[in-house]
Structures are given as structure tokens and as C-alpha cells.
């Protein structure tokens, strides 16, 4: 009887200790994965032309912060950034060990438009929204009056590679007797492009290659075919 009692007494205790240990172990494992006490050493930001400092400030994470401030909260931080920065279209924040990586995609800015004293910004669909300050990170539209036309041009501009897009300084709607859809693009590299609205997107893709053939700055005429010539008197 005594013997039986002993075993009976031993068993639950062993089981309970084991269970408790299992609990503690699982907590330990969770803590090991979580590692809330670990300090973040690096914050990598990849955000196109948006300055790294701006992104870091808006996310609110800097080296020296603790892991618990980020762990499991990536999605929240992503939303926070999207809300605070209207230039950001997509964000992905990931945490590996003590490194936080923030990848943010820039919203395509199709350009700026001024009506009276008010500046408007155009998004990739050509929708206009009032802005108080122009940062110049997109072409200026001049000479346009038709909203449909602005939309079409904005869409064409948005479809271009960023490299080419950021080289366009100004787009002027300048119809003449030969071409009622004529656009004049003043490029930041000093060349002037003549283009037709319908073929703007298709032909501007080759811009980098076309200007490589030019010996000096000048006019690139993409209205019909494509040819280029230096400016008069230069």
C-alpha cells in the first residue's frame, strides 16, 4: 500500500513539474523568438527619391530602439507611414534580427498644374488635387485647358520609366496647323521634344537612345517618325 501511495504521490508531481517546465520552456522559446530586449542596430530604407531621414522620422524607428517596438507591429507601422507621407504608394517593413528594412514605393507624380494662383498635383490617372507647395518632382503642365487632355497626357507620362519621367521639366500643349495634338517638352537635360499626344508614351521610351546619337543639345521631333537637330545658332 505504502509503495502504491508513493508511486501515486510521485506521478502527479512529476507530471505537474513536467507540464510546468513545458510551459516555461514554451515561454522561453517565445521570448527567444520575440527578443524584445534586443536593440535595433540598423534601419535600411529604400524609398526612391524620398530622403531616408524623412522615412525614418515618419515611421518613428531609429537605431537604438528596441525590437518590441517593431515586432508584430510591421503592418501598423506600414499604415502609419502611408498615412503620414502622401508620396508613398506601397510600404513593406521587415525585421530580421536587429535590422529593420523599410521598402517604400513612391507614388507616381504625373506633374503639376497651375490655375490662377493655385497649384494642383496630378496623380497617375491624371486626377488633380490642390497642393500648397510644389516640390518640383514632376513636370509642369502649361497651355492645357481640356481636363480629358490633361488626363491622357498624365497617363502617358506615368507609363514612362522613372529615369525618363524625371527628366521632363515642362509639358506645353502647343497645337499648330500641322499637328493639333502637338506637345512641347522642355527636358531637364536641355533638349526640347516635339511630340504628339497619342504617341508620347510609346516614343518617349526611346528617348535615352535617341539623345545618345546627338552631338549637342537640340530639338528631338517625335511627331512623325523621329529625328533630331541642334538648336538654331548653337
Amino acid at each position: 500500500m505504502q509503495k502504491i501511495k508513493m508511486t501515486m504521490r510521485m506521478h502527479p508531481e512529476q507530471t505537474s513539474t513536467a507540464t510546468a517546465l513545458a510551459f516555461l520552456a514554451s515561454i522561453a522559446v517565445i521570448l527567444m523568438i520575440w527578443q524584445p530586449w534586443v536593440k535595433i542596430t540598423t534601419v535600411n530604407v529604400d524609398a526612391g527619391n524620398i530622403p531616408t531621414e524623412v522615412i525614418e522620422k515618419e515611421v518613428g524607428i531609429k537605431p537604438g530602439d528596441y525590437r518590441y517596438q517593431v515586432f508584430f507591429q510591421e503592418t501598423f507601422l506600414e499604415r502609419k507611414l502611408k498615412k503620414s507621407n502622401n508620396k508613398v504608394s506601397q510600404v513593406k517593413i521587415s525585421l530580421t534580427k536587429s535590422t529593420v528594412s523599410i521598402e517604400a514605393g513612391e507614388k507616381i507624380n504625373a506633374g503639376f498644374l497651375k490655375k490662377g494662383d493655385q497649384w494642383y498635383q496630378l496623380d497617375s490617372a491624371g486626377n488633380q488635387s490642390k497642393i500648397s507647395q510644389v516640390d518640383g518632382q514632376g513636370p509642369v503642365y502649361s497651355g492645357f485647358s481640356s481636363v480629358t487632355r490633361i488626363k491622357k497626357v498624365a497617363r502617358a507620362v506615368s507609363s514612362l520609366d522613372k529615369t525618363i519621367r524625371q527628366d521632363i521639366g515642362e509639358i506645353k500643349f502647343a497645337p499648330d496647323t500641322n499637328n493639333s495634338d502637338k506637345l512641347v517638352l522642355s527636358m531637364n537635360d536641355g533638349n526640347t521634344v516635339y511630340a504628339s499626344q497619342n504617341t508620347l508614351a510609346d516614343k518617349m521610351r526611346y528617348y535615352a537612345g535617341i539623345v545618345a546619337q546627338m552631338s549637342s543639345t537640340g530639338v528631338v521631333d517625335l511627331q512623325y517618325g523621329s529625328y533630331s537637330y541642334p538648336y538654331n545658332g548653337s
Binding site: 503639376f112 497651375k114 507647395q133 510644389v134 516640390d135 518640383g136 518632382q137 514632376g138 513636370p139 509642369v140 502649361s142 497651355g143 521632363i168 521639366g169 515642362e170 506645353k172 512641347v184 522642355s186 527636358m187 531637364n188 536641355g190 526640347t192
Partner: peptide, 26 residues
């Protein structure tokens, strides 16, 4: 001289100066 409009605007934005633009081109 020979700057485009958006370069002028970018400069104005960075230098915190209001820019007023007339005409078109460079």
C-alpha cells in the same frame, strides 16, 4: 537661365522661396 520650370520649382522648394513663373520653355 536655361533651367526648366520644374528645376526652378525644385530649387524654390528646397530654398523655401516662392517662385513665380511666366512663359514657357527655358
Amino acid at each position: 537661365s536655361s533651367w526648366t520650370k520644374n528645376d526652378v520649382l525644385t530649387w524654390g522648394y528646397l530654398a523655401k522661396v516662392k517662385m513665380s513663373l511666366t512663359g514657357s520653355g527655358y
